[in-house]
């Protein structure tokens, strides 16, 4: 456990580039997390906050010597706060080509209902 924690700490923490947009059927969140495999990705909802964490371990052998480095292994961490209008039960996530797509549908409006009054 402690060994694992130190290993995670050694990775650079990166805030992934994120788009948030709204469409007819709800909100969409796109995150660029290249190099993260599905099994290294975690999405947690804690109360009003959705947290995405993913580890990207760039697969290079140790024999390689680098001439130019512009990206490296890292841990992507980003939190999004959810509004009350988001239906938490129906949040969908998909990962394709290093882009995480989150679909946050709106809550269905509750149908208006008449309350019968009983005479005592």
């Amino acid at each position: 456990m402690s060994e694992n924690a130190t290993e995670t700490k050694a990775l650079a923490r990166v805030s992934p580039a994120t788009d948030i947009l709204e469409r007819e059927d709800g909100f969409y969140v796109y995150m660029d997390i290249p190099g993260v495999r599905r099994e290294d990705l975690n999405i947690d909802i804690n109360e009003n906050e959705l947290t995405v964490t993913g580890r990207a371990l760039q697969g290079s052998s140790e024999k390689e010597s680098f001439l130019e480095v512009q990206f490296g292994p890292g841990e992507y961490v980003r939190a999004v706060s959810l509004s009350d209008r988001v239906d938490r039960e129906r949040i969908k996530a998909s990962l394709k080509d290093g882009v995480l797509t989150l679909h946050l549908p709106r809550l269905e409006k509750l149908a208006p209902r008449r309350i019968p009054v009983q005479t005592g």
Partner: peptide, 12 residues
């Protein structure tokens, strides 16, 4: 570019 009403755009 994705279609929709953007609240935040950071991805190139």
């Amino acid at each position: 570019t994705e279609q929709g009403k953007y609240y935040r755009q950071e991805r190139p």
